[in-house]
Nucleic acid binder design. Structure first.
Length: 382
DNA sequence: ACTCTGTCTCAAGACGAA
DNA sequence: TTGAGACAGAGT
DNA sequence: TTCGTCC
């Protein structure tokens, strides 16, 4: 779930800390990406018609491979150097949350068989999406694929998001790309949202810098973490009746959760029993991650052409022409970006963030989108 | 009236031929 | 899974 | 731009 409402909270209270950037401006940059999140999305959506997905001869799902393959090529073609981070063991505190998700999936499985009996297509599709789970096998498949592509893979000891943030803190990558706002709470200095979107949608890449967020909110990192816990995170409950806005007010007023608890009206606000906010804070502040020396060196290599053909074509039924063409793309992209990042390419574009709201009424949605795109494009340079 | 929270719903990739 | 948007209801 | 296909 990430941090509840954090995007909106930042848009309202720290708009200058968010900047729009062009996808192309990340040429030559090393970017850390949480793999599980992507795999999950691919399994849900790639090639799905009803309950069917893309599969190989043996009937095993290949949607995640198709998705990971094409997306990674897109990144490489843009000159981006991705490194994928895989999840390890979840922390104890998150187990409760995971248990909830597990039972939801179980419910969905029941709903699914019910829907099957009735034969409602839409329901079948809806419920089957909810039963999707990223398995060990999916993860292993993707690791193998990425290694064959010459793209580095890191297996985190615990939370992938935390490992991503650590890589960014130590300067091994330029930024963390994710849709999960947790990255900021883990202290990723530079965080990108919607990195993958701009191709098909009109959403620009949104870049957050934690230092600017802290500056603009006038908080120190510890207070920001407390703010996130109060707003609602994966590790523990929050206080009913307190959302982002109120949390920010309270943190500004009292400085820490401890002080808030001392001063708050406990008649009005129910503090959860045995509230483990201190442990949650510790998980954000000092998460279990590998240091630079503890994980393999991050290197981008040449693709293993034979290996890719064996894996994708022979084992998973991919079309050989497509794979061959794709390999060519990888090689071309590699040559182009091997000189690294030309700084002259990268003119600092001073663009301010635009608060994102604006309601679109039914039919004019398309038009509005076009107008927006034009307006944004025109404003950027002057 | 206004602000905030909580609950519900929805949609979700990438490509290229037409 | 994730966020966002629309809505209702509670509190100020 | 839209729509069907990828496996």
């Amino acid at each position: 779930m990430g941090i509840k409402g954090l995007t909106k909270l930042l848009a309202d209270n720290a708009p200058k800390a968010m900047k729009e950037h062009k996808f192309e401006s990340y040429f030559g940059r090393k970017i850390a990406i949480d793999a599980s999140m992507s795999i999950y999305q691919f399994l849900i959506v790639v090639g799905r018609v009803g309950t069917d997905t893309l599969t190989n001869e043996a009937g095993e799902v290949t949607s995640h491979l198709q998705g990971m393959f094409t997306r990674t090529i897109r990144l490489l073609e843009a000159g981006i150097k991705p490194v994928y981070i895989f999840d390890g063991q979840p922390p104890e505190l998150k187990k409760q949350e995971l248990a909830k998700r597990f039972s939801k999936r179980a419910d969905a499985t029941e709903d699914l068989s019910e829907a099957r009996e009735i034969g409602n297509k839409e329901d079948i599709e809806k419920f089957s999406k909810r039963t999707v789970k990223v398995t060990k096998q999916h993860n292993e498949d993707c690791k193998r694929l990425l290694r064959l592509m010459g793209v580095p893979v890191i297996e985190a000891p615990s939370e992938a998001e935390a490992q991503c943030a650590a890589l960014c803190k130590s300067g091994q990558v330029y930024a963390v790309a994710s849709e999960d706002m947790d990255s900021l709470t883990f202290g990723a200095p530079r965080f990108l949202r919607h990195l993958m979107d701009p191709s098909s949608r009109k959403v620009p890449v949104m870049e957050f810098e934690i230092s600017k967020i802290l500056e603009e909110l006038n908080l120190i990192m510890d207070q920001f973490i407390d703010l996130c816990i109060l707003s609602g995170c994966d590790y523990c409950e929050s206080i009913r009746g307190i959302g982002g806005q109120t949390a920010l007010k309270l943190i500004r007023q009292h400085g820490s959760i401890e002080n808030i608890l001392e001063n708050i009206n406990k008649e009005r606000y129910q503090i959860p029993e045995n509230w483990p906010y201190e442990q949650a804070r510790e998980l954000f502040k000092n998460p279990l991650v590998f240091s630079e020396k503890e994980h393999p060196e991050i290197k981008w290599g040449a693709p293993d052409e034979e290996g890719l053909i064996t894996f994708l074509v022979n084992e998973n039924g991919f079309n050989i022409d497509r794979v061959t063409k794709a390999i060519e793309k990888i090689k071309t992209a590699k040559n182009k970006s091997s000189q690294g990042r030309l700084e002259s390419f990268f003119k600092p574009v001073a663009n301010t963030s635009t608060p994102i709201k604006r309601k679109e009424t039914s039919e004019s949605a398309k038009e509005t989108a076009i107008k927006k795109a034009k307006a944004a494009g025109g404003k950027k340079k002057k």
